[in-house]
Design a protein around this nucleic acid. Structure first.
Length: 360
DNA sequence: AGTGCATGCAAATGACGT
DNA sequence: ACGTCATTTGCATGCACT
């Protein structure tokens, strides 16, 4: 019914962008196939770490060298990973300057320059160089970012735990996840798309974005974390093969078939919304049969219509509550200013009582 | 114009009550 | 079965960057 939106349209070319990301320059493959000895790999890894792998190469030869270094580092990392738990030390991405478009190179190198720079140290330490404090509103369910921002800098383990959820641990994982994602050359959208066809819960680009930014409640984060953890582990194993064997499809990253997912968000047409709003104005609590009729008329699920009315009532109630509290605040401001010079507390107490009464 | 990320608004969900 | 309420989550879109 609805026309393709801008975001829907923008998703189409993104798939083709993926395949270009997946290109491995075949010219350099023989070099990598010769890397069999542990010493050579160790040497390459050392060189990789010393050479600053995110710098653009001056010529094809240095490009080839970077490819070798990157793959050997990944190979070693995979071996380490089989014995240790995620997250391992991040490895900066190999950027094929011979095949990549100018845009994608610069977008990875410049957009996430800070992230990738922090990915280079071996100890995986998580500095806060590009951390942006996101203290925004008076939200009643504070995000991890806002909670951490309000804590003192020398906070202990206890103070970073909310409802048994260790915020520092989630923060570390979120950062490591982002670094790994970027190192694998994946966008948030691609991760979301891949998750949507795996077994278990799926999350959108928005959810991944909020998770990485910690713009999410601790409860929500602790729910998403294991999903991303599991997916990343599997993706890396498959990506490792891809790096050795040549280009494959992003679809290869997902083996499991669909199970129950959250219902896709309904987008009502403007016409449907108009009719729904008209119906709401007439009656905020339509009967079961009324809702069935509306659903049939507009060609939506009856349950979708029922939920729409619930949400609409809730929205109305919330906005009324908000405007009421705004009015109270305005009244208080004017009241308190007029009472400023009043030395007697009787009036103040009365105003306070009145205020408390309204609030209760 | 194309791309990736950030975010506002509201659809969907879950807990609980009747 | 359906309501309310708090919360989670995704679509649509804006923004920055090239």
């Amino acid at each position: 019914m609805t026309l393709p939106t801008a975001s829907e349209k923008s998703r189409i070319p993104e798939a083709s962008c993926t395949s270009s990301n997946e290109q491995i320059n075949p010219f350099y493959s023989p070099f990598f196939s010769n890397l069999t000895s542990q010493q050579q790999q160790q040497l390459f890894l050392t060189q990789l770490l010393l050479s600053g792998a995110t710098c653009p190469p001056l010529n094809p030869l240095t490009n080839a060298l970077q490819f070798l270094l990157h793959n050997s580092a990944l190979f070693l990392q995979q071996q380490q990973q089989q014995q240790t738990n995620f997250p391992p030390c991040p490895i900066p991405p190999f950027i094929d300057y011979n095949n990549k478009s100018k845009e994608s190179i610069s977008s990875i190198n410049l957009k996430h320059k800070n992230d990738l720079n922090t990915s280079v140290p071996l100890d995986c330490s998580l500095s806060d160089t590009n951390e942006k404090s996101t203290i925004d509103d008076d939200d009643n369910s504070p995000t991890i970012a806002t909670t951490l921002a309000t804590l003192p800098s020398n906070n202990s383990e206890e103070t970073t735990t909310v409802d048994g959820i260790n915020l520092e641990e989630i923060k570390k994982f979120a950062k490591a996840f982002k670094l790994r994602r970027l190192a694998l050359g994946l966008t948030q959208t691609q991760v979301g798309q891949a998750l949507s066809v795996t077994r278990g819960p799926a999350y959108s680009q928005s959810a991944i974005c909020r998770f990485e930014k910690l713009d999410i409640t601790p409860k929500s984060a602790s729910k998403i974390k294991p999903v991303l953890e599991k997916w990343m582990r599997e993706a890396e194993l498959k990506y490792g093969d891809r790096l050795k064997n040549g280009p494959t499809n992003l679809q290869d990253l997902v083996s499991d078939l669909n199970t129950k997912k959250r219902k896709r968000r309904t987008s009502f047409t403007p016409q449907a919304l108009e009719k729904l709003n008209d119906a709401f104005e007439l009656n905020t609590h339509p009967s079961g049969t009324d809702m069935s009729t509306i659903a049939q008329e507009l060609n939506y699920d009856r349950e979708v219509i029922r939920v729409w009315f619930c949400n609409k009532r809730q929205a109305l109630k919330n906005s009324a509550k908000k405007s009421k509290s705004n009015q109270i605040n305005d009244d208080n401001e004017s009241t308190s200013s007029s009472l400023m010079d009043d030395k007697l507390s009787d009036t103040t107490n009365y105003a306070k009582l009145q205020h408390d009464e309204i609030l209760s």
